[in-house]
């Protein structure tokens, strides 16, 4: 018998940390699904079903749509999917991490596991991305199906590779941002994060309107360029509803790519510094 009879290497440790996250996730599966799907579903219900039925909102002119009869649901679907992936990725890391880092720090058993601390950081990002993507997959069919008669969104996967790239980069950006915020914030500050940062970022993040539509509100069109959610949603429009005017992919992809890379590098660094006191 040797001292280390089992293979106590980083690879096994990493797999086990993923298994641990799955175990925790499984415990709150039903409530998580409800939490993820309810809000986008309500939005789709009100904006794509109730309002059109009530005659308050229907087909209208959308920039780039020559025929001028795009149902609003077409605008909504990429926006709701995009904002869900972003918020779910972010929340999947922020909330647990803030608690784990509050003393007595319950992340200690992973810090003592035989793997480098930065791999724990990357694992947190990876785990959050998966949860964000699951959120997107749940919301996509839901908002696709909920609409008033004749108001079906005109959505199809026009460019699968672009779709995958945008979704992955968006989820990575959000997860890395989540790791950064989760490392820096105190528990009582997380509420503030969501009301002061996330809510405006979503409302103005081209979820409910394409960026081109802001041509009429020029200053706002410039301001929202600081909002990463904009690039995610515009990228999704390019992949799912190319007939609606959208930001060119040569803007969307590099911006998301740089954001994702920079935030990943920064957040892993900040996390590693913070946990090794």
């Amino acid at each position: 018998m040797t001292a280390i009879e089992h293979d106590a290497g980083p690879a096994r440790a990493l797999t086990a940390t993923v298994a641990r996250d799955l175990r925790v996730m499984r415990r709150s599966l039903v409530s998580s699904v409800i939490r993820i799907v309810l809000q986008p579903l309500l939005f789709a219900f009100v904006f794509a079903y109730v309002l059109p039925e009530a005659g308050l909102m229907g087909r209208g002119t959308v920039p780039g749509d020559a025929a001028g009869d795009t149902p609003f649901s077409t605008i909504l679907v990429p926006g709701l999917v995009g904002s869900t992936v972003i918020t779910q990725s972010l929340m999947a890391v922020v909330f647990p991490l803030v608690m784990e880092l509050t003393p007595p720090s319950s992340i200690e058993d992973r810090l003592l596991a035989p793997l480098p601390v930065r791999m724990i950081a990357l694992q947190k990002i990876g785990s959050a991305m998966v949860q964000g993507l699951i959120g997107g997959l749940l919301v996509f069919p839901a908002v696709l199906l909920v609409h008033a008669e004749g108001q079906a969104p005109d959505v199809r996967v026009d460019d699968g590779i672009l779709l995958a790239a945008v979704v992955l980069l968006g989820a990575l950006t959000a997860s890395a941002a989540g790791l950064l915020l989760g490392t820096l914030l105190k528990p009582q500050q997380t509420q503030v994060l969501f009301t002061v940062v996330m809510l405006p970022a979503i409302m103005l993040g081209c979820v409910y309107f394409p960026w081109e539509a802001l041509d009429e509100v020029r200053w706002l069109q410039a301001v929202v360029l600081a909002d990463p959610i904009v690039y995610m949603n515009e990228g999704l429009r390019a992949a799912l509803t190319p007939q609606v005017a959208h930001m060119p992919t040569w803007v969307v992809l590099p911006v998301l790519g740089v954001l994702a890379a920079a935030l990943t590098a920064l957040s892993v660094r900040v996390f590693t510094r913070k946990v090794a006191k």
Partner: peptide, 21 residues
């Protein structure tokens, strides 16, 4: 008291073992 708050007592031990292969 630095146990993993999201896991039960038995799971805390189980995952310690699994982290170590």
């Amino acid at each position: 008291g630095t146990l993993d708050r999201d896991l039960t007592v038995a799971e805390n031990l189980e995952f310690r073992g699994r982290y170590f292969g």
